[in-house]
Every structure is written in C-alpha cells, then in structure tokens.
C-alpha cells in the first residue's frame, strides 16, 4: 500500500512523457500497489485560466482515476480574483488540498497575497502543497529559466498559522531556513521525491522525523521506480517504511 502525494496529470510543457496519458498513468500506479495519488495538473504551471485547469483536473480524476486519483487544485495568487479559485477547490470540488508553484507564477513568499492564501487555506482546512522546484535549472529551456522557490519568511508564516497543514514538495534544496527548521515550525511535512545521494532516506530521517515524511514520486516527470527503489537502498524497517509510504499521508488527510 502506497499513497503518492506528488503526482501530476496532463502534459509537461516541454516534452512528452511516457505516462502523460491519464489511463496509462493510473494503470502504472496500480501495478505498484498505489492506493492513492494526489495529483496536480501540469497545466497549472503556465495557464492563466486556472478555473478551467481545476475543472479539467477534477473531470480527469473522475473519468480515469478509478478511485485512485485525488485532485489538488492550482491557485495562482497573482491572478485577479484568485480567492474564488481556492473557494471552488474547497466548496465545489471538495478537494483535500491545493498545490502551489510560486516560482512559475512569479511571486516570492514575502508577497502579502501568499500570506492571505495560507490563511484562507487554513480556514478551509485545505492541505497546502508547496512545490519548491520542478526541473533541474541546468536542463530548463534556455528561454524559460525558473528559479528555485526561496523559503524566506515561510518559517514565520507557518508559526503564525498553527492549524495550517503544509507539505513541502521537491524540497531537498531549501534554506535558509533549513528543511528541518521548517518542519519543526508547525504542522509541516516533506515528500521524499527529491531526496538524493547514496542511501538518501537514511540521511533524510536524520534531519526530518520520519513521522513528517511522505511518499512523493514527481511522477510522471520522474520515473516512478526512482522513489520506490529508495526503500530497497535504505533499510529503514517496516515501521518507518509504512509511515512514509502511506500512514503519515492517511493521518494527514484523515
């Protein structure tokens, strides 16, 4: 049993991916014993009609998800009337959470609209997923250079919102503040998708309590096996494996 908190549907803007067709993606997830996949939409990176992006995400999950796909809506607080997008995610679609890409939407975390967004999500009890980056900057398209998200004031924003549920995605490269400082600041989790180096999970659990780690694949941009195999390379024991692979996510969304 595995819950993947970091997957996507639709098309990566710069390349066709082997599993960017939703039925094929679902079939692949079923093959590896996934019971849930929390999916955002690649369309949410650049499209400005976010309302349509989220409507299509919900439709895609309902048509092809087979109970597996859980939509995480996009919200871009630089767009006019963005508050209605988050309201729709909560009231119309009953989503568990939203996924943010501040670097693709062109704002820093010290933007007052980001603070307002966090407060709104907290009031709706929506999980907020914050993606720190999507692609290695060295391989990005030369005309579309997207920097990493800088955490800046994030620690204070977390501390000011004790009921906020926050997941840091693709977060191996953050700081200051460090990943462990952000985790300690509140109800904050991190996914394992970008944990890298030999024995990466052995190293990760030394800086982040395993109760705050979630399985994330960054699939289909990343190959699904990349994160599954980390549990073979690091021998963590069944208790920690189960916590990271599904129990923590189940508790967070319980």
């Amino acid at each position: 049993m595995i819950i993947d908190v970091n997957a996507y549907v639709s098309r990566w803007p710069f390349r066709r991916l082997p599993f960017d067709d939703t039925p094929a993606l679902v079939e692949r997830l079923h093959q590896s014993d996934f019971t849930e996949a929390w999916v955002g939409s690649f369309d949410g990176l650049f499209h400005e009609d976010i309302a349509r992006v989220n409507a299509e995400l919900v439709s895609e999950c309902e048509r092809h998800g087979a109970g597996l796909l859980k939509p995480m809506g996009s919200v871009n607080p630089t767009l006019p009337d963005w508050q209605d997008d988050i309201r729709r995610c909560h009231e119309e679609y009953g989503m568990a959470g939203i996924r943010l890409h501040p670097n693709y939407h062109g704002y820093m975390l010290d933007d007052p609209r980001f603070a307002e967004l966090l407060s709104l999500a907290e009031s709706f009890s929506l999980i907020v997923q914050l993606a720190f980056y999507m692609e290695d900057p060295r391989t990005q398209h030369k005309l579309v250079q997207i920097p990493h998200v800088q955490p800046g004031p994030l620690k204070q924003l977390i501390e000011e919102r004790p009921r906020l549920k926050l997941i840091l995605l693709n977060s191996s490269i953050v700081g200051p503040p460090t990943l462990s400082e952000l985790i300690a600041a509140g109800n904050v989790y991190a996914d394992i998708s970008h944990a890298e180096s030999i024995g990466s999970l052995d190293k990760l659990i030394k800086i982040v309590p395993y109760e705050r780690l979630l399985f994330g694949s960054h699939f289909p941009f990343f190959i699904l096996e990349a994160n599954l195999l980390k549990f073979q390379e690091s021998e963590l024991g069944e208790t920690i494996n189960a916590a990271i692979r599904w129990e923590n996510a189940r508790s967070l969304n319980g």
């Binding site: 082997p18 890298e196 180096s197 030999i198 024995g199 990466s200 990343f222 190959i223 699904l224 096996e225 990349a226 994160n227 599954l228 195999l229 980390k230 073979q232 390379e233």
Partner: peptide, 18 residues
C-alpha cells in the same frame, strides 16, 4: 554517479524505461 546520486534514481532510468 554515487555517492552524490543514489543507485535508486539512476537504476530507475533503466528499470522504468519502455
């Protein structure tokens, strides 16, 4: 490219390829 990279992510390139 271990140890900066892991066996997991790099073997996956082959294991997961169609």
């Amino acid at each position: 490219d271990v140890g900066g990279r892991s066996f997991s992510t790099q073997l996956a390139k082959v294991y997961g390829a169609k």
